[in-house]
Amino acid sequence: MSENKVVLSVRDLSVHYLTQRGALKAVSHASFDLHKGETLALMGESGCGKSTLNLALMRLLPGNARVPNGAIVYTRRDGSTIDVLKMNQDRLRRFRWSECAMVFQAALNSLNPVLRVRDMFYDTARAHGETNHHKVRRRALELFRKVRLDPERVFNAYPHELSGGMRQRVLIALGLLLDPQIVILDEPTTAVDILTQRTIIDVLLSIKDELNFSIIFISHDLSVAAEMADTVGTMYAGEIVELGPVNDMFYRPRHAYTLGLLEAIPRLSAGAEELTSIPGSPPDLVEPPSGCKFHIRCPFATDICAKETPPMEVVGDGHSAACWHADQVYARALQFTGAES
């Protein structure tokens, strides 16, 4: 973290989907800050609300989604702030991509198959007032070089002429075209092979150092998260249950669910018998369980867990967790990870 300036501040954000059975509470009361140059990784099982949260940040939610409460306050480069949720359509449109870009999972489908790569660059630039093709082209070629692509070839190619890894990097370059302050990466390495994965991570690390933007990062792959992230957040059933610096989160977790996720990763140092996956499945979000939503699956659960929702409490420097049994978790984690307290 180069500076401490907050570029995005999310407060008490909830997202509900209207379904026939009632409101599906996909995100509940999420709050976090993203600093300039910081990489925030969000982890959690599928369906935990990570992707919904990201879509909400750019107001790209589908038609049946509602935001009953919360604020997404964005700080512009000049220091002024604005709530994304309160922008009108036109301002929102201009805000998108120029301030906050997004690289989706499954890069093949993220590019319009009937357009050339260059048209998508021109489209994007024109939408934000840049009609000079030469300038756009120069910028795009520069970005392609940064993401280690053959600039000329890729620029004129159709999406189907590129491999999965190339497309992913094209998207990253496209994301950086307007020099946004924030780039949201949704599973950027999931659909590609292991070597390409490596390349992409290297590219991301190098351009991030160079361009100094902030990243919100979603991944199943905790090792990627560990490598990329400054800060890690754990989401369960639509809630951010633990948030903290990457080392604290991986070595000294305070929430039973974070610990569960860590225990599910095969480690070189550990024996096979210690590998556990979390039993059970995520809860119904239309009628979520009372108290701590994880209590049904939690090995540490006691009566209080079912009755009362644990508050988010600061447990360390920049580290907070919502767990009634944070101490037991911590003790078990030390034993498991072998880290120093």
């Binding site: 750019m58 790209l60 120029s98 997004m102 993220s110 319009n112 357009l115 489209d123 994007t124």
Partner: peptide, 21 residues
């Protein structure tokens, strides 16, 4: 399709999305 969402995320005007995307 994802590319429609991406096009929206890119801030493209609706007209362009309807026609070309």
């Amino acid at each position: 399709e994802d590319y429609i969402t991406v096009a929206k995320a890119r801030g493209l005007p609706e007209r362009r999305i309807v026609l070309a995307y």
